[in-house]
């Protein structure tokens, strides 16, 4: 259904408005939310915490955004985080640092390629293809760690998530870097447009000579790589690999971040800046709940309600009527 262009609202408007609303709420009701200090060469405060903890979701969300833009979804990122964390932790005490990093990222890339091949070669639905790794992945991670929680004391590896660079925690820089790279690659070249084209109508794409198989394979591999980076950060942060709980529910957060950011679930449209805002919003919401004594166990309840609200607002049917309403007034 063709829509008049002027009637569509700017995509970043909703997530930014929600984030602003949440910050206003905290400004009024959460004492000390905005206090930021400069201590030992780094910034310390709730806001910095939020930035730091949202970076993991943000990194995975960048990969997820591109996958969703092709009309797919990757349910296995949580399990891949567990695998990569397990790889890094197992090597932590005995291999040189570059080997650890390369092995963890390699594992992520391999997992992503695996998903991509299932989708492109076997032509499985993305939900099914990535479900396989979602089920088997934690088993693989357990196998690597032999069912134990592996702890390590490797200063260089621990530094990745626990040290600061230019006053901000390193994961924040990694997230910004990956997002900037992905944004530059997709928007400065034709890649972004082609990804959206595949998500919009893959058959038309194939007929017009786009190698959609390779493109899809690429985005799943990239998503796996992003999960690998997140796995490295997670295991560095807790100084251990926990195959059961590492990256648990991360796929949900990443999908949620992408959708909040205005990436269409059916594919065909994406916004990396939006996904970053989405990741920030999720973490800010979580932090706000913790600061208001909502227990970590109950927290999924309001989060789930928020997901539903956002999804309903983004639903095509609601969106058209909202846009018509906004267009009618303009």
């Amino acid at each position: 259904m063709p829509e008049p262009r002027r009637a569509s609202l700017p995509p970043l408007l909703w997530p930014l408005a929600a984030l602003a609303l949440l910050l206003c709420f905290n400004f009024l009701f959460t004492p000390g939310f905005f206090s930021v200090e400069f201590r030992d060469g780094r910034l310390v405060g709730t806001l910095i915490d939020i930035l730091n903890h949202s970076s993991k979701v943000a990194i995975v969300a960048v990969g997820m955004t591109l996958v969703i833009a092709t009309g797919g979804v990757d349910l296995s990122v949580g399990a891949v985080v567990a695998i990569c964390g397990a790889v890094a932790a197992t090597l932590a005490q005995r291999a040189p640092m570059p080997v650890i990093v390369l092995a963890a990222l390699g594992a992520g890339l391999a997992a992503g390629l695996c998903n991509g091949l299932l989708v492109t070669r076997l032509r499985l639905q993305p939900i099914v293809a990535t479900l396989v790794l979602m089920v088997a992945g934690r088993g693989v991670a357990q196998l690597i760690t032999d069912g134990l929680i592996i702890t390590f004391e490797r200063p260089a590896l621990v530094a990745v998530a626990n040290r600061s660079l230019l006053a901000l925690p390193i994961p924040v820089w990694i997230a910004v870097g990956i997002a900037a790279l992905a944004a530059a690659f997709t928007r400065r070249t034709a890649a972004g447009m082609l990804i959206e084209a595949v998500g919009d109508n893959d058959r038309a794409c194939r007929y017009s000579g786009v190698n959609e198989s390779r493109l899809r394979l690429g985005v799943y591999a990239f998503c796996g790589l992003c999960a690998g980076v997140a796995g490295l950060i997670e295991c560095s942060y807790i100084k251990a690999a926990d195959a059961n709980n590492a990256g648990l529910f991360l796929e949900l957060d990443a999908i949620l971040a992408a959708i909040i950011g205005g990436t269409a679930l059916a594919g065909g449209r994406f916004s990396i800046a939006g996904s970053l805002t989405g990741a920030l919003l999720i973490q800010a919401l979580t932090k706000t709940m913790y600061m208001h004594d909502v227990s970590a166990d109950v927290a999924p309840l309001p989060k789930g309600l928020a997901v539903l609200a956002v999804c309903i607002l983004q639903a095509p049917r609601v969106k058209t009527s909202l846009a018509r309403w906004a267009g009618g007034r303009a």
């Binding site: 979804v73 939900i127 949900l252 999908i255 959708i259 679930l265 227990s295 166990d297 109950v298 927290a299 999924p300 309840l301 309001p302 989060k303 789930g304 309600l305 997901v307 539903l308 999804c311």
Partner: peptide
């Protein structure tokens, strides 16, 4: 899958 994903969150939080 999206709505039931949210349902999974809600029921889990509700249980606690």
């Amino acid at each position: 899958f999206l709505v039931t994903l949210a349902g999974m969150f809600i029921a889990r939080g509700g249980a606690f």
